[in-house]
Amino acid sequence: MRLTLHVWRQRNGRAEGQFVKYDMPNASEDMSFLEMLDVLNEGLVAQGQDPVAFDHDCREGICGMCGFVINGVPHGPERGTTACQLHMRKFKDGDELWIEPWRASAFPVLKDLSVNRSAFDRIIQAGGFISVHTGSAPDGNALPIAKEASDRAMDAAQCIGCGACVAACPNASASLFTAAKIGHLGLLPQGQPERDRRAVSMVERMNAEGFGHCSNLGECEAACPKEISIEFIARMNRDYLGGAFSQRPAGARIED
């Protein structure tokens, strides 16, 4: 199939970017989207031109490294699918595709389609863990956990941290990402001792990183390659509110 590509080219974070048009005369429908870009890049390199930079690694939809916006949709048109698992048979001969990086001030562009997502790591640093030292754990079966709770925790835990939720949100909110971690750990008995502290600390970090607020549009859930539910955002809001009370210093009042 023949495609016309408009790819966002930006030399680095300080430079201006623009769409550049490329002809892709011989895409195969069995290619993945990233393989199609590989072919484009081989052609560019052969002509001595700078190839399009994009992040990718496992190409199995699990590492979360890849992702960009295709015709306005993060990871492209197939639901529950990362860009690396999207195949060209989902497009038609003659299609025109606009390919651009995640757009969010908390995700500055590094080059072309590659952005800096280290804000996500800092949100995890703020509390996305259970404080347990190596070697101090009791037997794995000492604490029975209801299958339902464990399964639901897993629904949240499968977040791959790709950032599509942020890119899909008109407010560039990281609520789905943050809520998935708060939900994963907060649903398990091991996560209870730090539950309030975690929710408050992670939400505050998310805000400080420059992500917007959630206004319940649900775009994040629609774009999420793991189809994580926005129910977890509701849960996060409840935990945050509860935590805001329990985490204030002893004797302090909530006044503003």
């Binding site: 259970i130 190596t134 070697g135 209801a146 399964d151």
Partner: peptide, 22 residues
């Protein structure tokens, strides 16, 4: 055997039986 204990304590959501065991 220690690895499983460590991972459970960290919150790794291993598959479980209805009775709550791994």
């Amino acid at each position: 055997v220690n690895i499983i204990d460590q991972c459970v304590a960290q919150g790794v959501p291993f598959a479980r039986e209805y009775g709550g065991v791994l």
